Amino acid sequence: MRQDVPCLVEAHYADEPDDAVAADRYVFLENGPGNTPWLRPGRYRLRSLDIAGKILVERPAQVDPAH
């Protein structure tokens, strides 16, 4: 993701429509290694929005099960 903070990152299940409720949301207040959302294993579409609600980045993501 880009380095624009503060921002909101929404995780949507990959197979759900764009207007579905996000599976999770995480607010990044500052840059740093502690910014880690916790998601269940699965396929997602991550969407990052700035403070005005403008979409900054949207990309697919895969969370694999822990071994």
Score class of each variant (00 low, 15 high):
Arg2Glu: 14
Arg2Cys: 14
Arg2Pro: 12
Gln3Pro: 05
Asp4Trp: 11
Val5Cys: 12
Pro6Glu: 13
Cys7Phe: 07
Cys7Asn: 15
Cys7Tyr: 08
Cys7Ala: 15
Leu8Asp: 06
Leu8Gly: 04
Val9Cys: 08
Glu10Thr: 03
Glu10Pro: 03
Ala11Trp: 08
His12Ser: 10
Tyr13Gln: 13
Ala14Val: 02
Asp15Ser: 13
Asp15Arg: 06
Glu16Arg: 14
Glu16Tyr: 05
Pro17His: 06
Asp18Ala: 14
Asp19Val: 01
Ala20His: 05
Ala20Thr: 04
Ala20Cys: 07
Val21Ile: 11
Val21Ser: 10
Val21His: 03
Ala22His: 08
Ala22Gln: 07
Ala22Pro: 12
Ala22Thr: 08
Ala22Tyr: 07
Ala23Arg: 12
Ala23Ser: 13
Ala23Thr: 09
Asp24Asn: 11
Asp24Phe: 09
Asp24Pro: 01
Arg25Thr: 15
Arg25Asn: 11
Tyr26Cys: 03
Val27Met: 06
Leu29Trp: 07
Leu29Ile: 01
Leu29Pro: 00
Leu29Ala: 06
Glu30Gly: 05
Gly32Arg: 02
Pro33Arg: 02
Pro33Met: 02
Gly34Tyr: 01
Asn35Thr: 00
Asn35Leu: 01
Thr36Val: 06
Thr36Asp: 00
Thr36Ser: 03
Trp38Pro: 00
Leu39Val: 00
Leu39Thr: 00
Leu39His: 00
Arg40Ser: 05
Pro41Ile: 02
Gly42Val: 03
Gly42His: 04
Arg43Cys: 03
Tyr44Gly: 07
Tyr44Asp: 04
Tyr44Gln: 05
Arg45Ala: 07
Leu46Lys: 08
Arg47Lys: 14
Arg47Trp: 02
Arg47Gly: 03
Ser48Ala: 15
Asp50Pro: 11
Asp50Tyr: 12
Ile51Val: 15
Ile51Tyr: 10
Ile51Ala: 15
Ala52Ser: 15
Lys54Met: 04
Ile55Asn: 02
Leu56Ser: 06
Leu56Gln: 10
Val57Pro: 00
Val57Met: 11
Glu58Thr: 14
Arg59Val: 07
Arg59His: 13
Pro60Thr: 08
Pro60Gly: 12
Pro60Met: 10
Pro60Tyr: 09
Ala61Lys: 05
Ala61Cys: 10
Ala61Gln: 06
Gln62Phe: 10
Asp64Met: 11
Asp64Val: 09
Asp64Ile: 03
Pro65Gln: 05
Ala66Gln: 07
